[in-house]
Write a protein that binds this DNA or RNA. Structure first.
Lengths: 178, 178
DNA sequence: TAGTGCATGTAATGCGTTACATGATTTC
DNA sequence: GAAATCATGTAACGCATTACATGCACTA
């Protein structure tokens, strides 16, 4: 087992799911994983090289017309690394949620502005929910079961947040009125 | 308005909530905000200096016995900065959840191991839930309303995750049996 | 022919953790 | 007298974003 960072496993995993180029990896991440794990070109391309040097992926030039292009695929070693990582339990995530931070400090704010923070959080999650429902409704090949599972998680998570905000908005308005 | 990072506002906010030293800030963060926004000494102390230079906090030496100690408090400018920041809407957070990432790639795994990932996620959130309930049950001064709101959010969030995992564990076991 | 998409990459900068280093005071 | 707690800080490293730079191919 190598000592790899999370981004390395995103790349390995996406190659496993059919991505061929760095560009592919980025697009698939943006379409399906961005909400729980983002990745930028500035990480992906250097990471592909490191993985190649470590023998976990194999790259070869595969130009399309006169356009430069590198295709990658998992090596046997790379597949093992991915499976080994998948088999280990994950760390609990450290959230970094600015909106919760603002709410946490909102005792310093007039009630109406604090309520506004709650509303803004709700609206953010409502938009997010709409986006995920759109993705879900898109035609095209069925997703693999666990890819679909995570999409449904995203939807459930957004719904939870919307409902929670609504509940607390009501509670707060009631209190303010009392 | 200065151009400050999130950690700066954590520090300002915690001083507003009664923290006096960098050490205080760290402890309060660990007790009440770590689950949605962590901060380490390596950020806090340099940040306090920057804030002092920017005139947002005021520090003075306040040794207790022969022990070196610096107390800080918000300046008027610092309080305004904090309030200004609180009044603006927050960005949607970018999650970075390794456990969701592993589930996302779990189609590559034998079903039983994938189920194990779900169970591990559930157990993580169960522990987290137990921890938050303990914090909630602790005696001691009542928390300000919004501090309490966020504690209740944490609990609701953990409960949501536990329930979601249970539901999906069942669904998956059913499928495997079919 | 202009715009969009495909494709690859680097450099600067900033954010954050970890490990290290030090030392006084209080409590058992 | 040992251990825990209070308290402050730095240095090295790693991770990630952003902005920049380049250029081909297809389509409207």
């Amino acid at each position: 087992m190598e000592d790899l960072n999370g981004t390395a496993y995103v790349v390995l995993g996406m190659l496993g799911l059919g991505a061929r180029t760095g560009y592919d990896v980025k697009n698939i991440v943006d379409k399906s994983a961005r909400f729980f794990w983002a990745a930028s070109y500035g990480q992906i391309y250097p990471e592909l090289r490191r993985l190649e040097q470590a023998g976990l992926v194999e790259g070869r030039s595969a130009p399309s017309g006169g356009r430069k292009r590198r295709e990658f695929q998992l090596t046997e070693k790379g597949r093992e690394e991915l499976l080994g990582w998948l088999a280990q339990p994950a760390q609990m995530p450290e959230l970094r949620d600015e909106s919760l931070l603002k709410l946490f400090f909102s005792d310093a704010l007039p009630r109406e502005q604090a309520l506004e923070q709650l509303r803004a959080r709700r609206e953010g999650h409502e938009e997010f929910l709409a986006f995920l429902r759109m993705v879900q409704a898109e035609p095209g090949g069925e997703d693999p079961p666990f890819v679909d599972l995570i999409l449904r998680y995203g939807i459930a998570y957004a719904e939870f947040n919307v409902e929670w905000c609504k509940r607390e908005e009501k509670r707060l308005s009631r209190k303010a009125a009392a």
